[in-house]
Simulated scan of single mutants.
Amino acid sequence: MGRKRKGRDISGILLLDKPPGRTSNSAMVVCRAIYNAAKAGHTGALDPLATGVLPVCFGEATKFSQYLLDADKAYRSTFVFGQQTNTADADGEVIAEADASDLTEALLNERIADFRGDIEQVPPMYSALKKDGRPLYELARKGIEIERQARPVTIYEYELEHFEPGVQAKAVVRVRCSKGTYIRSLAEDLGQQLGVGAHVATLRRIAAGPFTEQGVVSLDVLQQLRDAEDFAGLDTLLIPVEQALGHLPAIHLGDSAAHFLRQGQAVFHPGAGQSGTTTLFDHQGRFMGIGEILDDFRVKPRRLIANM
């Protein structure tokens, strides 16, 4: 029999405004402590320098965190041209400098267009990707660089919002992209193409899947509620997990079908006309979990919540 986790048995998604200077994991740990939650996890790492939308899942919501990990993301970032760092962001050491005063807004827009659509991107050495079980950043800190395979990513939007010319020119860009995209690599590759080098000075995630920065809550606000022991106020900030899955089709099951599906059995549903992943709701409209539509109009459970 497994050991019961300590803490409150709560479920839902918190949209944290991750502060700068923290890893995503450390921010999640603080949230878990503030909520005194039995179980928590985050949904995709942000660089310590980065701020913005970090969905933190509690309880049963952690079962579905992969869907937010796989979701598209959007960012606003400041690129500095004429200065290259070893981490491709402002936290690293400057390793090369160049005069970027000839850079113009027109030229920048022209080169940015080359990076829209389906592209190949080499992950940076200072990343959480693992080689033989070790994060690449651990190797990078020891001065070890290994060959990385380019990976396909999709850049849906890449727009220049503001340009400031100079020896170290600055550009504010907005990017909407597929999972696994490194904004630092976008900056570095753009700077390399322009021949002056570049790095990320600021980075903010403004959307993750269906969630935007309009709904985020800071650690300071959470701590104030915790200091007041206002757990009810904290809990009202949690979003039902099904809101993260609104892009999936939904199936509502009758009482009998819902019962057998909870037992792990595939059930017939006349509305299940095409194969694929679906959200499942019982006859009272309560979220049950994720299912898979089979070719024969049956639905089988894939991942169900336990507290029903």
Rank of each mutant, 00 (worst) to 15 (best):
Ile112Glu: 04
Gln84Phe: 02
Ala113Pro: 01
Lys6Thr: 14
Phe260Asp: 13
Thr278Cys: 15
His199Lys: 09
Arg141Asn: 07
Ser65Glu: 03
Lys131Ala: 04
Asp99Cys: 09
Ala40Gly: 09
Ala257Arg: 10
Gly7Met: 12
Leu139Lys: 02
Pro19Lys: 08
Phe231Glu: 09
Gln192Arg: 14
Ala88Gly: 00
Asn86Tyr: 03
Gly271Arg: 14
Tyr126Ser: 01
Pro270Met: 07
Ser11Gly: 05
Ala50Val: 13
Val29Gly: 04
Leu107Met: 15
Gly246Asp: 15
Val173Lys: 01
Glu60Phe: 03
Pro249Ile: 08
Ala71Lys: 06
Lys170Asp: 04
Leu238Phe: 05
Ser11Met: 04
Glu164Ser: 12
Glu157Ser: 09
Asn307Tyr: 06
Arg151Leu: 08
Gln223Arg: 14
Val122Tyr: 00
Tyr137His: 07
Gly12Lys: 00
Ala232Lys: 06
Thr278Glu: 02
Val175Ser: 01
Ala33Gly: 07
Leu139Thr: 02
Leu108Pro: 11
Gly133Val: 02
Asp227Arg: 13
Tyr35Ser: 09
Gly273Asn: 14
Leu139Gln: 07
Glu157Gln: 14
Asp295His: 06
Ala88Cys: 15
Tyr156Phe: 12
Val173Tyr: 02
Phe287Tyr: 14
Leu194Ala: 13
Ala306Phe: 07
Tyr156Gln: 13
Pro124Gln: 07
Ser101Phe: 03
Ala198Phe: 00
Gln193Tyr: 06
